[in-house]
Design a protein around this nucleic acid. Structure first.
Lengths: 252, 252
DNA sequence: GGATGCATATTGTCCGGACAAATCGCCTGA
DNA sequence: TCAGGCGATTTGTCCGGACAATATGCATCC
């Protein structure tokens, strides 16, 4: 009773004249069918060879589409059995959140207040974190993130100078990561550490909390696609108003 | 100066009689060459077609090997340029840790004390989290994790009864996830939420902390490969002794 | 009735080739 | 000297096929 009958034939519309790859078109339509409920959880997808024939594609192309959804955690393949939709309560794996803080705050009327935005020589600690020489110019950024008009987090970031032009007004409007992407910096990976501690007097005042209140701390080092360090940050969140949520995928 | 000359020819030994796939053999040897330093960061890998010819493999096979390392974040491919080793300070991406708590505690003389291990009817909250009917039998597990002889975390877990036989002695020796894997349960994904709060009197006593000390809280729902919920847990960590560290990979 | 073995279905691996798209360097021309 | 175009290089996409490995269900045999 866990596996349903092989799914009925869904019609996927593929556009061979489009510049977007066929396997990607198929993957997107499969994903939307799953999210939409047209493909029920636990249902079999029908074998690849037949599916390929029906869509006028080759098996490798169909496999590439399916594989991308397997990597996303939406499908599971079992040899000798077939490919079935994962029977998950949580729709939309949400992927890796908490990298784009902005996204989580979406729908919560978020706002950012830039408290500091200047170039300074790097301290020993910052230089080590960024992998540059001590005393090199770095952009120092201090921001206060607000939701519903109340402080939620205090963000302190350091970037190698010359990497980017950071206009304060634009920063408050669009966010740091969006500006980096616009500048041609493609983020690749980030190393994070999440901890907690009690608020000091200064921190409490800045975040409108009481002294000793629980705070979430996060340190992050971000790398671009070539492995260069492009950002180092220390963030402090009010635990009463914020939590990190994310999904882990276990590689088989 | 960022890209070195095309890497010299490394000799990879492929065993066609082995049951382990060729692309996997190649991927492993490439990875070890990278970790080992034989392939310097930033160096080009040489084009796929030539590499395939030199190894006596087809291009799809070589591509499959390379792609797996790209997914791991060790390599970067650029059309018209080539494939190069990512120039990363952090060797070993560490992948997704914090799922196997045990692994992090490794080398810290970890120990586990099982405080509770019994079957009980599920409360409304637990039933909802596990996606089962209220009142169904669930295994209730309470454990204290110690390092260096001091408490580090208090772990409370719930599992659907009948899924697994949990021997207390073995649990203290090997850990929950290892026992689940031994029982044929293959973990697939998990949804986590990390927050913080101040310790209550009871919590402080249990963890040998002072009242009001900062605690890290973690809630997790784990799914097996078919999407079934196999575990729900609420964990509390002493912030003074623990932090979550992990690496995020941004999907392009 | 139960265990063993076989046929079938399905994905996993691998091959060889073809053309398109993007990037970079070089050459030409103004 | 600088701008633009051209070609070479390399990865991206896609095809068609072949055989192997694994899981399932059925028939047979004890």
């Amino acid at each position: 009773m866990t596996t349903s009958a092989p799914s009925s034939s869904l019609d996927f519309a593929l556009d061979r004249t489009s510049p977007v790859p066929l396997y990607y078109q198929l993957a997107q339509q499969l994903e939307s069918a799953i999210e939409h409920g047209a493909l029920a959880p636990g249902s079999l997808l029908g074998n690849e060879i037949e599916l390929a024939g029906r869509l006028g594609l080759s098996r490798p192309t169909v496999r590439q589409a399916i594989q991308s959804l397997v990597d996303k955690g939406l499908l599971v393949r079992r040899r000798g059995v077939g490919t079935q939709v994962v029977h998950s309560q949580v729709k939309r794996p949400l992927e890796l959140s908490s990298l784009y803080d902005d996204l989580e705050a979406a729908g919560q009327s978020p706002a950012t207040r830039v408290l500091r935005n200047e170039v300074q020589p790097a301290s020993a600690e910052v230089a080590a974190a960024l992998g540059i020489a001590e005393g090199s110019d770095v952009i120092v950024l201090e921001r206060l993130r607000l939701t519903h008009g109340q402080p939620m987090a205090f963000l302190c970031n350091f970037l190698p100078a010359g990497l980017l032009q950071l206009d304060t007004a634009k920063l408050e409007a669009t966010g740091l990561y969006r500006m980096m992407r616009s500048a041609g910096i493609t983020l690749h990976s980030a190393r994070q550490s999440i901890g907690a501690r009690c608020a000091t007097v200064d921190e409490a005042e800045r975040l409108e909390e009481t002294e000793g209140a629980a705070l979430l701390t996060m340190q992050r080092t971000a790398y671009d696609s070539t492995g260069r360090i492009v950002e180092y940050g220390t963030h402090i969140y009010r635990a009463s108003r914020y939590a990190f949520e994310f999904q882990l995928l276990v590689r088989s």
